[in-house]
């Protein structure tokens, strides 16, 4: 399962990278606008393909007529309540027609959000900026038994402290500082084996993988930026605490997820007619 997800991640990351490549020059906000437009159109198109459009149209027409009837018979309580029941029934029917496609739609949406998180969740470390590298071990007793975990970094990244060992969290952390821009590999070693983790310093807005995780299907799915750490390794995960990417609109910071959801819904609604899709 993990290897399938891993392979899928490679393909999806490559494809998303292709779409994203021409947009990255626009900066975080405008590239997000463009991706929201594409995402909104894509989701509406999928919705159109996987839903019974004729049934949805019929249901919506019927709902509209019931709503008109409500206004016409507002003085006749018996008929009025009868229509209310009809409205409720047709609403439930509409939900039945929409729910299935919505569930199907969740799959590409999740994939899209995971890829977006890779590009908009965090930004590369700036030159001179410091952060933590956190290594989590699989064995809860390893640190207590004196496991020696070391971190090696290229000259472009300065390791400022010794590893701080927190036994109760199975974790060793270092403070590092970006020295010069680029993409490098950190190497974490327990004396027997070494595991690498990519780190980004400076440069343009590009996807940064905050965590390299173990071979578990869910974490592999959520962190697609790097291949999983083999399950036989003593190291469960390596995380770099990158700063969150700041997307500002008129001086106000906004979370990328909220921005994407709002914009893609607006674009999707605005362009559903162009695609001939009933929502």
């Amino acid at each position: 399962m993990t290897s399938i997800i891993s392979g899928l991640n490679t393909v999806l990351t490559f494809l998303f990278g292709l779409v994203y490549w021409p947009l990255k020059w626009l900066g975080p906000f405008w590239s997000m606008v463009a991706l929201s437009w594409l995402g909104g159109m894509f989701m509406v198109w999928i919705f159109g393909k996987v839903s019974d459009q004729a049934a949805i149209r019929r249901t919506r027409d019927r709902l509209s007529s019931e709503l008109i009837a409500l206004r016409l018979y507002k003085d006749d309580l018996r008929i009025f309540f009868g229509i209310q029941c009809q409205v409720l029934a047709w609403t439930l029917r509409y939900l039945r027609h929409s729910l299935g496609p919505m569930l199907i739609l969740m799959v590409p949406t999740m994939i899209l959000l995971i890829q977006l998180n890779l590009h908009y969740g965090f930004r590369p470390l700036r030159v001179g900026e410091q952060t933590l590298v956190k290594v989590k071990l699989r064995d809860p007793g390893a640190l207590g038994r004196g496991a020696q975990i070391s971190l090696q970094a290229p000259e472009s990244l300065k390791i400022e402290t010794q590893g701080v060992r927190v036994e109760e969290m199975r974790e060793v952390s270092w403070r590092v500082r970006g020295v010069s821009p680029g993409r490098f590999d950190l190497t974490v070693s327990d004396g027997k084996e070494s595991v690498t983790k990519n780190v980004a310093v400076g440069g343009r807005l590009e996807g940064v993988s905050s965590m390299r995780t173990g071979e578990h299907w869910l974490t592999s799915l959520l962190y697609p930026g790097e291949s999983p750490i083999p399950s036989q390794s003593a190291i469960e995960s390596i995380e770099i605490r990158y700063p969150e990417l700041d997307i500002s609109i008129l001086g106000k910071s906004m979370n990328w997820l909220i921005l994407f959801l709002v914009l893609s819904l607006l674009f999707g609604y605005a362009f559903k007619g162009v695609l001939g899709v009933q929502i």
Partner: peptide
Amino acid sequence: VYLDPKAGAAK
């Protein structure tokens, strides 16, 4: 504060 006296540092 997580102390690591050997490392002379804390998280």
